[in-house]
Amino acid sequence: MRAAVITFPGSNCDRDMADAIAKISGRAPLRLWHGDAELPDGLDFIALPGGFSYGDYLRSGAMAAKSPIMRGVIAAAGKGVPVLGVCNGFQVLTEAGLLPGALMRNAGQTFICRTVPLRVESSQSLFTSRYQAGQVIQVPVAHHDGNFFADEATLDRLEGEGRVAFRYAEPTNGSQRDIAGVLNDAGNVLGMMPHPERAIEADHGGTDGRALFESVFATLSVG
């Protein structure tokens, strides 16, 4: 398996993401810089980490979404390569047009940093096959702009197509329909505000994030 983690100026969860991928897949991912004009060939998995790319200037994720490397990420996503965006990575994916909706300031205005219960909405996706549908897991969030917004027609379409991957099991940040993570129409791009890479070993306080990585890696040739 050949995975890559992309670092933007201001990313701060890139190392955690790389560590989670290395520990769960057994192989350290490539570390790529946002300014790289091209992605290496043959990537099996691409992760966009959390952080505050470009200091959240303009809108969270807006500048990073126009980085040179994103052209390659968009092309790879179009070819079916699994892409995971966590927190700021989710914001970048929406700004890049790979996922619908937008992430706005939390309804309560405050930065939220705590572990929250998430409901796994479906176990049919590439990223959730190792969970049970309806299962409630505990995963940390740490964000100021996690309030998911999309118009009603888009929300209905996402629900109808089974593209809501995770929902907050309790009101958290004002997100429409408590949506915490969504998939693209092909199912190979997932964006989520909670941090699965921060819940992979007992010392993190929980390991509920592991199954997400195990789900994806199970479909790839590990080695």
Binding site: L58, R59, A62, K66, T94, E95, P100, G101, A102, M104, F149, A150, D151
Partner: peptide, 9 residues
């Protein structure tokens, strides 16, 4: 449309 505004919101 490409950068200054997010047309979703």
């Amino acid at each position: 449309r490409k950068l200054l505004a997010n047309m979703v919101i």
